[in-house]
């Protein structure tokens, strides 16, 4: 089940650090987002930080880790942690179906020069969304289960609402990840 299902054309981290820096600037302007579903809800992440989409495979457990950290996998010689967004955001049941995929994101963290690569388990990948910055609406501050700092904004797509996630925040699991346990 290791087959890579779909690889977007854009590879932000292939061409050296300059390119990926550009990518991040680009993001703040707002352009394309990869959308996926978690149960009935639609979410989007910046497509420039997506390095690949993989099929689900059983990862190696990490002892004493938070529940949403499923473990680590070997991604071509690199040890990559796998996080389940459904558990993290308390959305629906975390069961692993054939459509379950792992979106691998690479984010350049502020302090470290190297980028941080993590995989996120989602129910399915749906679409690539074009969103101008005008289209992105501020998320209303009602009592959702996702902490507001993870949310970049909302975009209306037809009848659906896509929640754009803040990729930089997603990979920042270290501090609260430990205490949440």
């Amino acid at each position: 089940m290791e087959a890579v299902i779909e690889v977007p054309e854009i590879n932000t981290h292939g061409g050296g650090k300059d390119l990926s820096l550009e990518g991040i600037d680009f993001i703040s302007g707002g352009d394309q987002y990869l959308t996926f579903c978690l149960c009935q809800e639609h979410y989007g992440v910046d497509i420039l930080s997506v390095t690949e989409i993989r099929g689900w495979e059983e990862p190696t457990l990490i002892p004493n880790s938070p529940e949403y950290v499923k473990g680590v996998i070997n991604l071509r010689g690199v040890i990559v942690p796998i996080l389940d967004l459904r558990i993290r955001f308390h959305i629906g049941e975390a069961d692993y179906k054939p459509t379950t995929v792992v979106i691998v994101l690479a984010v350049k963290s502020e302090q470290a020069s190297a980028s941080c690569t993590m995989g996120f388990v989602v129910d399915a990948v749906s679409d690539v969304l074009n969103a101008e910055s005008d289209d992105i609406k501020v998320a209303p501050s009602f009592g959702g289960l996702i902490e507001p700092n993870y949310i970049q904004g909302l975009v209306n797509v037809g009848a659906d609402v896509v929640t754009l996630l803040n990729v930089d925040q997603l990979v920042q699991l270290d501090e609260e990840g430990v205490t949440n346990e």
């Binding site: 950290v69 680590v72 690199v78």
Partner: peptide, 8 residues
């Protein structure tokens, strides 16, 4: 291999 580079 390092666990810390991508995790902690």
């Amino acid at each position: 291999k390092s666990l810390e580079s991508n995790y902690r």
